[in-house]
Design a protein around this nucleic acid. Structure first.
Lengths: 182, 182
DNA sequence: TATAACATGTAACAAGTTACATGATTTC
DNA sequence: GAAATCATGTAACTTGTTACATGTTATA
């Protein structure tokens, strides 16, 4: 539903066609969310079918006509309902992509540190990209600021982990066990 | 691949059967990751088929026999390779579940604040659950600490957002526009 | 004149979850 | 004797991405 919320929110500002929505999302939100064209087109069709959106065809020469979507009163209601629901409900973040951190002690510090430094460099690169954004309008800017906070936290956290690996004290009780070998 | 990494990591400590792995994950990681039984069983089968795991059947009375998996040398190699790869590569977090924050200004502050307070309460509840965990062994503890950091950040961030909504200054430039209505 | 940008979409695939199926054993 | 726990798995569904298909118009 969050993806529908996003589309409805953007269409609330002005009517747009799919390609245009894709550009918007690409330009302003690509660092923080994945949302690809086929999905956009599909959801637009779905929302049109249930009456949240109205479709208007815009002919322009011989190319595929633009399908311009505008939000209907029903769509506006749906938007508000989704928005309230989504604001009030917190969905816990999935940490599966960080599971490797749990097995840090299976590698030697000498090997671990450069890997973590590499990871850190990537986060930093992303942070710089996000920071270089022009300010967005209204509360849209909150998305950017939130991501910046998040990335900054990730970096300081990683630095601490690296520090702990270096000074050897990784997981609290003496239980450090990376095994002897190549 | 992260899920396979997790299974391999757990099986590196000791051989286990699927049900047991599921219990482990449930007990120690359920606050931070989703990983359900059917997925576990499927991945165990896959990894057995490619020779990363060895399967041994343990009969016990008349009930379905336990299929106990132990990691093979090939599995150990795969584990290390996956671990290195996964440590070095940062996969950006998806913020789609936070998109509602971008449309905060479509609701009146009077309505927004309680919704956000509710959201905050949920994060706090989760934080308390995570904090009540016994310390995990070795670097596994890092997962817990990371999640705690994350949740604390989310809470302070939300508090700031609430503050900004209350004092009206939401998204930087004067562009606050929540529309007049019921 | 080749490539990028414009504009739409379908089809195949991926990677999970939820719901269902089965049956023994232990606990209340 | 009912319900929870132990133990396995399959099947259907969900929700998204990637790859492909198509054709026009502007740009290098």
């Amino acid at each position: 539903m969050e993806r529908k919320l996003l589309l409805l929110g953007l269409l609330q500002m002005q009517e747009m066609h799919g390609y245009q929505l894709n550009e918007m999302i690409d330009a302003h939100l690509s660092t923080s969310i994945d949302f690809k064209k086929p999905t956009i087109y599909k959801l637009l069709g779905q929302m049109r079918d249930v009456g949240w959106l109205e479709q208007r065809e815009e002919e322009a020469g011989n190319r595929p006509p633009r399908r311009v979507y505008s939000i209907t009163p029903a769509g506006r209601d749906a938007f508000k309902a989704l928005l309230r629901e989504s604001l009030a409900a917190y969905k816990p973040t999935d940490f599966i992509d960080h599971i490797s951190l749990a097995f840090l002690d299976h590698l030697s510090p000498a090997e671990t540190v450069p890997l973590l430094e590499n990871r850190k460099a990537q986060i930093q690169a992303l942070l710089h990209r996000v920071q270089s954004y022009d300010p967005h309008q209204g509360s849209m800017q909150l998305m950017v600021e939130h991501q910046i906070r998040h990335l900054e936290m990730e970096i300081t956290w990683l630095e601490e982990v690296i520090e702990r690996v270096v000074t050897k004290g990784i997981g609290m009780p003496g239980g450090t066990h990376h095994d002897r070998n190549e």
